[in-house]
Design a protein around this nucleic acid. Structure first.
Lengths: 198, 198, 198, 198
DNA sequence: TATGAATGAGGTTTCATTCAT
DNA sequence: GATGAATGAAACCTCATTCAT
């Protein structure tokens, strides 16, 4: 029986290799070597190279959704929920730099396929954000004129761009901590750049 | 003498092809055909395939910098400047979808090379944003605790993610206009999601 | 102990798969699936893929030799024997299209190996034909200047080419019956195209 | 401009390699080396490996058609025409053993594609045979009950099977000359095995 | 300067065969 | 004996780049 363990090993290896070299520059043999399996073995678990990318993404985003949902369920205040989302996302990206790379590098490499895919797990992830906005509007905490479907993209875009500064091969000394960045982002999205900090 | 016209033709063709197929899936022969030159001719004007990408980017971002700088120079209020930047960026991306694609797809495909490059023209573009923030802080319009270097990334990330919804092959009916999106973004960055709209 | 039943099942499956896909396009796993055994099991019964082909051939030609020999033993007239051979061969090929395909497609795919093999069962089959000729010459029914070793190839070649028109995926409406073809062939080989039909 | 000379060189090399190794065992790099071009060059002239096979066949059969047609046009007697066809075919196969191999080995390897292809050049070749039969019948030289479409296959099948004994790697000493074989075949097809030789 | 035919390295994928269970 | 997951060699084909014309 195909071992679930080997599947995991390949996913982990692929995440690492994709993060380091990018999807197109990653060779199957790199992933195989990293996973310590034969090249052919990979094709017992994945349809083709692109299928590996999709699986990496699906798997990792799935985990993220689980973790964040758990955290959010313990909280009522939409304002705090937004902060939690921002902090958790940044924390994860800092911890799992490979995933961060895969998201922002690979997510944009192909066009049609990824777009199609986005309707699945990834859009579910983004929809957590819009739910928070909607809930905040219902509870009169957030402004009514915020468009949740725009806001979710604005917030995610910021997070994704920011998390790039932690990318593995980044030489620039960017010594912002997660806390600093998270506080800054939360503050900007809550009060804007003009309002007075709370 | 190498004709500047042919250089331009190739750049234009490459922008189109990169936008449509992505950097790695674009073939030199595609670009050559689109530019109506021979494959070999391209190598009289560019060192290699990646050099074309860099040049496309440099050229287009350069144009953008020029245009935005011109607009901003006519204005004093940092609040308005921020709005202008946001609106202009979105307008350009909507108008020049190929560039939008090249920015958000290609800019993230390679790693080291692009990062290196970013120190040049692109970071100059982002620095327009931080200058606006700094100017706003000096004029006491923006909060002092905003970190300009973070804010520039937050804002650009938002813009870039948002501008993807206008991507060429996007089937989803996203009927937000530039005005709507621009207003929303400006408002969020100015007052945040909690404050009251002006 | 290796079950003779499983051996048979694999042979039958291989015949079917080879006929449908051709030797080189047939995969071991196709044969295994068709035979409802595991891939590895096949290697308990056969040395390698080519060995299966040889065995299929040996087995089927063996059966044919048995059947035809039986029929011929009941008959004395070499003229009738020739007719019997022709008719029986064609009947079998029409009935067992898979075998027909295996003979004319596969028999020619490999070179040295098949040629070597031909010294065994298949040449025995052809020698039935030359025996008939020789017997006919001894009984003064056939011309003395016929070279039996050439005649056997001439006759087999005709039969084999003809039997291709009944191949499984042949769309052309070739509505010659076995009887028509058999009569035609027998007549041509007996009287030639010039003589008057009997 | 793609040189016609290189096309020819590749065809010639492919004929040789296919004849020696068989289509499936022939590697593109074998053909390239034999033709003294780079592997990639082959794909400037042919769509894929199978396309090379088709082209080899088309080309060679085309030449054959031309030569035989020329010879036949000089002759009126269908009986002699039949003899000419038989002799010429055998001569060519003996001279160009590679072609003989390609015909009887490769022609049968694939199924649908070749069958489809056969409607073109090859079937034209076979139709020369049926035309001779028909002409013979009209001139009352050949029996009326011969079915031309069967006869053409019978004759070609014989020729093809016979010409195999001249195959390149055939160790068996088959010392029949073209003349012997041709005479034998002609005689069998004209008078049958029973009639008296002329 | 421009061409485009030629190159050839290199990658994805297949699949016969092996071997631990 | 039977299994089928694992192996890894090998091959087709692509395409960036070169260079003779």
């Amino acid at each position: 029986m195909k071992s679930i363990d080997k599947h995991r090993k390949i996913i982990r290896a692929a995440t690492k290799v994709f993060a380091k070299k990018g999807f197109f520059n990653a060779r199957i043999s790199d992933i195989a070597k990293e996973a310590k399996v034969a090249d052919g073995t990979i094709y017992l678990y994945f349809k083709n190279k692109f299928d590996i990318l999709i699986s990496v993404f699906e798997q990792e985003i799935g985990k993220l959704i689980g973790q964040i949902t758990l955290l959010l369920n313990k909280e009522d205040d939409p304002k705090v929920k937004l902060e939690i989302f921002i902090t958790k996302h940044l924390e994860e990206m800092k911890k799992n730099r490979n995933l961060a790379e895969v998201i922002h590098i690979e997510l944009r490499q192909t066009n049609k396929l990824i777009r199609e895919y986005r309707k699945n797990n990834f859009s579910q992830y983004l929809n957590i954000l819009s739910s928070i906005i909607i809930e905040g509007q219902e509870k009169k905490v957030f402004r009514n004129d915020i468009v949740p479907d725009l806001a979710k993209q604005i917030i995610f875009g910021s997070l994704d761009e920011i998390s790039r500064i932690w990318g593995p091969s980044n030489d620039i000394d960017q010594d912002f901590t997660v806390e600093e960045v998270s506080a800054q982002l939360t503050s900007i999205f809550q009060q804007g750049v003009m309002g007075q900090p709370e």
